[in-house]
Structures are given as C-alpha cells and as structure tokens.
Design a protein around this nucleic acid. Sequence first.
DNA 1: CGTTGACCTAGACCTGGGTCTAGCACCTAG
DNA 2: CTAGGTGCTAGACCCAGGTCTAGGTCAACG
Lengths: 143, 143
Amino acid sequence: MADNGLSIGQVAQRTGLSVHTLRLYEREGLLASEVRRDGSGRRVYSAWDVEWLANCVKFRASGMPLTAISRLAQLVREGSGNEAERLKLLREHQRHVIEQLAQLRDCLELIDGKVASYEQHLAAGASGDPWQQQLQPAPQERG
Amino acid sequence: MADNGLSIGQVAQRTGLSVHTLRLYEREGLLASEVRRDGSGRRVYSAWDVEWLANCVKFRASGMPLTAISRLAQLVREGSGNEAERLKLLREHQRHVIEQLAQLRDCLELIDGKVASYEQHLAAGASGDPWQQQLQPAPQERG
DNA sequence: CGTTGACCTAGACCTGGGTCTAGCACCTAG
DNA sequence: CTAGGTGCTAGACCCAGGTCTAGGTCAACG
C-alpha cells in the first residue's frame, strides 16, 4: 500500500531480479542498508533500497563481482568518512568497464568483418571465404 | 623449428590461454580443424589453428559461450555449403555484442556520475553525497 | 644410464552466481 | 475451518568455464 515499503516480490518485479537472488544478495551483504522487517519477519524494502538494488543490477551487468559490490555496500553502510575508499572502488570498476568497452569494440570489429565477408560471399556465390582451413599451404594428408 | 607447427605450450604463450584450456577447448569442439599430432601423439598446431584460436579468444572475451563457438567451429569443419548458417550465428553474436556495448555505456554513465560526485564531495569537503541512506524521509525507528 | 621437461589422458576439483526445495509461518477469502 | 498465496530459513543443487592431479610416454642432455 504505502509505496515506501515494498515486499520482496514487488521488488523482484521492479528490479528484474528473482526473489531468490534478492535474498542471496542480502546474504552476501550487497545491500547498503539493512532491510527492515515487518511484524512477522517479512522484508520491507524502502524506495532507497530499490534504487540501490537498481544500481547493483547495473554493476552486475557491467561485470562487477558480488564481492566488490559487497565491499562498496559495506562502506556505504558504515556511513561517511570513507568516501575516498568508495571513490577508489568506483574508479577501479570504471577502468574495468572502459577496458571492457575497448575489448568489445575490438571484438565487434572482428565480427563485423566476418559478417561482411560472409554477406559478400553469399551474395556473390563463393568468392573470398573468411574461414576456410583449406586456404593454407599443405593439408594434403587428410583422408 | 618449422614455424608452421607449434606445440601446445607455444600456442598457450601466443594465445594467452593455458595448456589446460587449450585441451579443454579441443575436447569441447571449439577447433575448426582437427589438430594434427606428431609421431608420439603430441599436438601440432598450424598457424591457421592459432589464428582460429585467437578468434576464439575474442569471442570468449565478448561473452560468446563455448557451445556457440563450438557450433560455429563445427560448421566450418563441415566445409562450405553452410555459410548462411555461419552468418546467422555470427549475426546473433554481433547483436549480442552491440547490446552489451549499450549496457556497458549505460552503466559507465552511472559510474561516471558517482565518481564525479565523490570527487566533488571530497574536493569540497562533504557537499552532495551520492549515496547516503539517511537522505530519505523516515528511518527514525532504527536502533 | 638416470633425470629433466614437455607432453599425453582421464577425471577430479573449484569458483561464481544463481536457482530450487523442504518445511514452516502468516494472512486473507470463501 | 481450510485453502491459496506469499513469505521465511537453511541448505542442496546446478551450470559454465576453467584449473589441477595422477600416472604415464617421450626425447634429449650430461
């Protein structure tokens, strides 16, 4: 009802994580503030929790391991005073993401090339073949 | 000696894969042509094999699962006639990589934002704090 | 001749990140 | 009262992708 207070199911829906995963993340210390519980022990997530989780989702999507998110969460949990450390962590991941981007672009280039040659190949009916082991000098000893 | 004929160790060095991984990849059918063996059963990789493996490394780095690489390898192994299928596979992965790029950029934006605020925060001595759970209305019932 | 180093196979092991199950507690509706 | 739906915990399970081990074969070196 009150929309500052969501059940785990609702949070699962809006974050795209499963309830299992939400509980896992909590166990692993990914949450930056302890999740409240209602009278009968059920989790009650605040809007802020959900926002944080949304960030977690992005971190995960960019390859940040749970342990790193957990460290960050811990710093945030501990409150102000450790901002420099948080920044360091973030910068590390930032670098990592930038590297990944470079790698991906590089790889995409390769794939684009292959795709283009196959397209040509198919359009023209067997011209240059991007991958054909027979193109090398001497595989004449095969069956 | 003959540089068209490398041992597994040499290939490991130039691809950056471990010899274990090279053997794994072979078992999993990632190689597009059967690796030759010398008189005593040792693998002898051709330059072409190494090139292919380098491609595999890029595919892996861009998140292509072993099974997909294996399918592609199989198609190549089977020889010409299935280029359309190879193209399809490549296009799928291409799409995937493009999506990943978008995601990563998105995530990088988030991180850049956080990094910037922390930098400001640190430079200015506690101004706007990018993550502070206390910023929300009413967490007054905590111990 | 012994030993060193690279290689072989088969198969066990490990990590990360989930995902699912069992068995139980609530709450609400019929 | 009973059933359904949702939640809880603890812990098992699973998959991908490696990584390592045991036990053995070679070839070359001193």
